[in-house]
Design a protein around this nucleic acid. Sequence first.
DNA 1: CGCCCTATTGAATATAATCAACCGCCGTGG
DNA 2: CCACGGCGGTTGATTATATTCAATAGGGCG
Lengths: 262, 262
Amino acid sequence: METISPQASVPHPPIRPSEANANACARCIHLSLCQGTAAPGQTAGQRIRVERHASLYRAGDTVGKRIYSIRSGSFKLLRAAPHGATQTTPQVIGFALPPEFLALNALGEAQHACSAVALEDSEVCCISWDRQAFKGRRQALTRPGLHLLLAREIRREQHIAAMLRNTHADQRLADMLLALSAHHAANGYSATRFRLPMSRCDIASYLGVTAECVSRLIVQFKRRELFQLRLRDVSQLDVEALRRMVAGQAPAAAAPAAETGN
Amino acid sequence: METISPQASVPHPPIRPSEANANACARCIHLSLCQGTAAPGQTAGQRIRVERHASLYRAGDTVGKRIYSIRSGSFKLLRAAPHGATQTTPQVIGFALPPEFLALNALGEAQHACSAVALEDSEVCCISWDRQAFKGRRQALTRPGLHLLLAREIRREQHIAAMLRNTHADQRLADMLLALSAHHAANGYSATRFRLPMSRCDIASYLGVTAECVSRLIVQFKRRELFQLRLRDVSQLDVEALRRMVAGQAPAAAAPAAETGN
DNA sequence: CGCCCTATTGAATATAATCAACCGCCGTGG
DNA sequence: CCACGGCGGTTGATTATATTCAATAGGGCG
């Protein structure tokens, strides 16, 4: 199995389909999305280990015509130059945990638009979206399954944008905590007790606020007993209170001209 | 051809494939994305007229297993309840002009997550993403073409989120004007002179600021001679200056912990 | 002509950014 | 072993940006 280390500054070499791990799919957490009709050996995707702080791919890398399913660990997605070329520091545009996918936004593109950096030692599984892969049924993921993933990703991004538009910093943090909680709950883990694999700076960048602001919010949340947080371990998350905070009141932005306006 | 009026408060009835307009595809602006191998009569999609202020679909509507290509006019996309149910006013999450597509985020979903409201009298073309449609080649859009569209949409939303995270209000407005300019330029229209089909309130909601703020920014932009704006007509847009403004300086958000941080 | 809705302008306020200092942890190395 | 330095995180004081509330102006349409 290939391993990517933080020191490897050059893009990892393209992966030969022939290197496929025959048993990968049998244990794959995405089995429900897969076809399951192909022979086990044929559907298997290459697995890759990505060490903490290493990049699975970087913005500008040539796209290898595959997406990655996260088997273990966690990633942050970085946008290199948010708008102009003068931007110096990359921006966190998202986090990804198992059983989510990476590089969905690279479909059909020549180069990656963002980087995927492991927050801890992680493992991913490659799934090709090559034309032949679909034709030859040597593929774990079906076309309709891929459509679902892509559409879901669009909705997720729309939710993030909506949140960024009309919430205050405290609501953004609450929304993020709720998203993590819901994700863990949906995968059989505790909804009230989990670990934050990312740094405060990453959280701040993702939420579009400063690190200082995140820090202040955390003490405020603790004081209001919305959660407990030691270093990166969340516990006693008050899901209902957070939900009230997010849904609660005041959007910060103007209301549009409803359905009768233009 | 079916027409949707603003008064029609009930969802429009499902469209029968048999009603397809035989000549639609011949004039279709999306021809480059289409297969072109099917017989003209087979590939045609139903066309729908949507009157100003009318909804092509609404959040909560049953999804008709089709996407819409905009032939003429313009739309705004509304998210009904941004987060909680207590939210009163819908939020503008995007605008769409020809030759863009609508309802890409509904793929595989049972209900629409947002509403599409015409900003002016508009016309769209239906393209089915039904399983049979792809199988039978009775379809204008190919599977790979659909993948491209979906991935592009993800990237677009990511760009919007990135903008909302680390720009000030003036940069957001500049970014929006540049996007419109680039879109028009890419489709053979003027990059410096065009019409804004949406209201100030819609702009404000989309940018995540108040209408007052947009108003003040506009006078500021005029004073700085970044553009001229009479009512809804933009002219003499200074693309370079706007680009400098967007790329220019200061993100409002914190920098993440780079590649070496976690 | 006059009403209604959109858009604009103004003054006061609030939220979060900025600048700066400090703490605590951890790995390095004397 | 402990001192050092770097980094992530926290806290404080000040400032800036955009919101809020309020009032006014302008245009389209009956």
